[in-house]
């Protein structure tokens, strides 16, 4: 008797749980991570970089043109700007004004988030390479993840002139990156069925037209 109780409890939970989900009217298929927005090791803001500063996506994610992966840029790419920009601009400005008022050289202000980048690069407090410090790559949390059985290549999509936002959504307004599309096969097919093979032609209205490939083997091989 003692073993049936937990099973009964589990069954009840399942029924209640399913009921709750159905009531929410959203059944999410396994593997659908739409809306996933994990915390990242550094509070990097796409809103500031891509939105306010209008840095082009491909400036950092240059892999999208060269590789199947868009890739997360090496820390050295960050350092191209952040060897100079060590903290939010207003904080630096404040320090400059204060320094001017106190008639001294402005101190180097390093924000805690930027310090994480410098730690990764093994830089000391003056941002000089310190051989004593271990250089440790940053472990970002992956947001967009396709299953291993599908081959996706950024190159062809970028070459075809697809806007990054079409699949990745309004990253320019995202503080932290969130998975915009559900990345399901149906979602891929919706686009493949309506995109003409000829890049100059108008989008085809119905399936069966002269669209880009929907062969199984195009992505699954």
């Amino acid at each position: 008797m003692s073993c049936t109780a937990p099973i009964a409890f589990a069954a009840c939970t399942l029924v209640v749980g399913l009921g709750a989900v159905l009531a929410e009217t959203e059944i999410r298929l396994p593997g659908n991570h739409q809306g996933y927005e994990p915390l990242q090791p550094i509070a990097y803001s796409h809103r500031i970089h891509a939105g306010e500063l209008q840095i082009d996506c491909l400036a950092c994610h240059y892999g999208a043109e060269k590789s199947r992966h868009a890739g997360i840029p090496p820390a050295e790419v960050c350092m191209q700007c952040h060897q100079h920009v060590t903290a939010p601009f207003d904080t630096i400005l404040e320090e400059r004004e204060l320094a001017a008022a106190e008639e001294r050289e402005p101190r180097l202000i390093v924000s805690p988030e930027m310090r994480k980048l410098y730690d990764a690069m093994g830089l000391d407090d003056e941002l000089k390479p310190d051989p004593e410090r271990e250089r440790r790559p940053i472990e970002w949390v992956r947001v967009h993840q396709l299953p291993d059985f599908v081959y996706f290549d950024h190159r062809v999509h970028v070459a075809r002139g697809l806007a990054c936002a079409q699949c990745h959504g309004p990253v320019r307004s995202m503080e932290r990156v969130r998975q915009f599309a559900d990345l399901s096969m149906g979602w891929c097919m919706d686009c493949h069925r309506t995109t003409p093979a000829d890049r100059n032609a108008a989008p085809a209205a119905t399936p069966g037209g002269d669209h880009v490939s929907i062969d199984c083997a195009r992505c699954h091989y």
Partner: peptide, 15 residues
């Protein structure tokens, strides 16, 4: 996790 390189080595591209 995605762990990019620290240095942008020429010719080395993830994937």
């Amino acid at each position: 996790l995605v762990v990019p390189r620290l240095d942008a080595a020429e010719g080395v591209q993830a994937g």
